[in-house]
Design a protein around this nucleic acid. Structure first.
Lengths: 229, 229
DNA sequence: GGATGTGAACGACTTCACAGCG
DNA sequence: CGCTGTGAAGTCGTTCACATCC
C-alpha cells in the first residue's frame, strides 16, 4: 500500500533527456551570482573559474561545469565576462524580473522576512499578508494590511502574487498551502516543519530551521566525540 | 595557485573508514525524530519504515538504510519500537541534552528566532545576545540583555554557550565568526550570505534565505517555461 | 504474510585528466 | 603559459531485489 508517491518527489524537473540543472547547481549559481555582483560593483569585468569558486570553497572544475549549463560563455586563456555571466545566470534562474509573494501567518518570523532587505535587493517583493487570527486582520505591518484567509483568492488575484511564503504553525500548513494553490499560487516557501503535499506543477521549497540547528549540533557532537586524527 | 583548500570543505567528518552518516541522512533523521515524537504522543509504540517515511515522501528502503546507522533496531515482521528509535536518534545526533547558543546581531530575524518555540521545544536555548550597535547594548529582549561584542569572551565563558547564531550583515560575518571561535564557540549557524572560513574543528551550517527563494523562483520559472509533458 | 537488513545495480554528482584555444 | 570545455573515472547516495526472521 501507498507506493504511488514515487513520482511526487520529482514533481518538478520532468523530461530529463538532456542534462538538467540539479538543485545543487542552482544553489551554487545563486552564490556565484552574488559573488559576481560584488566583482561588478568593484569594477572587475573578467573572472576565472578559480577566483570565482575559491571564496566559496568550490573547485574550479565544479564552477566550470555549473557555468557550462548557461552555454559557452568562457574564453580559454582569458576567463569569463562578469556582466555576461550575471545576465545569463539571472535569465537561467528566472530572476531577471521581479517576483511577488504572498505571506501567510504574520508572526515574528514574518515580520523579520518583511524587513529583510536581502529579498527586496534581489527582486522579491511581498505584496500581501494573510492571517487566520481575526485580531490581526486589519492591522498594518509596514505598509501592508493583514487580510483574512477567506479573502485570499481575491487578494492574490488583484496583487498578482505568484509565490507563497508560509510562516504558520505546522498544523495549519497543509490547509493554507491548499488554499494558496487554489488561489493560483505557483510556488511555496515553507518555514513550518512537515512536508506539504501538492499537485504536480506546484513547486515547494522547505526551510526547516530546527533541522538546520540539529545538523549543527550533530556536527559539533561528532567533532567533540571523535578525537581529531 | 590556491589549490590548498581541497580539505577545507570536509573540515568535519574525518576518518571515513566505516560508512559515515551523510548530511542528508542527518537531516532525514531529524525529520523522522519529529514524526516519531508525534507517534509517541499519540500513544503508538510500533512503526514500520513504510509508515514512517510515507508522509515525508521517503521510500521505505531509504528509511531503513538511514536507521541502519543507529544499529540493528528493527524486528523483521514487526517494525521498530518508537521509544527506542527516539532515544537512539537523539543520542546519535547529540541532541539528548540541551545546547546553549549565543546570538550575535539583534535585528528582526534575531527577535524572531528568540521567540521561536521550535528551538526551545527541542532543547536549544539562546543564552546570550550581542550587538555591535552601542545603542542596542544594554537593552533587554525578552529576558536577555544585549551585550557589546567586546565582552563576548567573558559572557560566553560564564553562560557556557557552545553554539553561535549569526544574524549580522554579510560584511561583519567573518569578523564576528572569528571572535566567537576565539571565545570558545564550537559551531556556527550563519544566516548571512557568504561563507565563513574557520579552522578545522569548528562546524558551520549556513542558512541562506535568498538562495532558497531563488531556488523556488527557478523551479516555478522552469515549470512555467517547460510545457508539462 | 509482513517487515527488516543488505549486497548489488543504478543513478547523480564531483573530480581528474587532458585537449584546445587565446 | 593560463584558462576553458569536456569525456572518463571516481565517489557518493538511492533504489532494487531478495534472503531472512517474526
Amino acid at each position: 500500500m501507498a507506493r504511488q508517491d514515487r513520482s511526487a518527489r520529482r514533481s518538478h524537473s520532468e523530461s530529463s533527456l538532456e542534462p538538467r540543472l540539479s538543485r545543487a547547481s542552482v544553489g551554487r549559481l545563486s552564490l556565484y551570482l552574488r559573488r559576481l555582483e560584488e566583482f561588478q560593483r568593484a569594477g572587475i569585468h573578467r573572472i576565472s573559474s578559480n577566483r570565482l569558486g575559491q571564496p566559496l570553497a568550490i573547485t574550479d572544475t565544479q564552477v566550470r561545469k555549473d557555468l557550462a549549463f548557461l552555454g559557452r560563455l568562457g574564453q580559454p586563456g582569458i576567463g569569463y565576462d562578469v556582466d555576461d555571466l550575471i545576465g545569463s545566470i539571472r535569465s537561467t534562474l528566472g530572476i531577471d524580473r521581479c517576483w511577488s509573494a504572498a505571506l501567510v501567518g504574520v508572526g515574528n518570523l514574518a515580520r523579520a522576512l518583511l524587513r529583510y532587505n536581502g529579498f527586496i535587493e534581489r527582486g522579491f517583493r511581498i505584496v500581501a499578508l494573510f492571517d487566520s487570527d481575526l485580531r490581526k486582520v486589519g492591522q498594518a505591518v509596514d505598509d501592508l494590511t493583514i487580510y483574512p484567509v477567506s479573502r485570499m483568492k481575491e487578494i492574490i488575484a488583484t496583487t498578482g502574487a505568484e509565490l507563497g511564503i508560509l510562516t504558520v504553525p505546522a498544523s495549519a500548513v497543509q490547509n493554507v498551502a491548499d488554499e494558496l494553490v487554489a488561489a493560483g499560487i505557483k510556488g511555496l516557501l515553507n518555514f513550518a516543519p512537515g512536508l506539504i503535499r501538492t499537485r504536480p506543477g506546484i513547486s515547494v521549497v522547505n526551510v526547516d530551521l530546527t533541522v538546520q540547528l540539529e545538523q549543527l549540533a550533530f556536527l559539533v557532537h561528532l567533532t567533540s566525540t571523535e578525537p581529531l586524527s
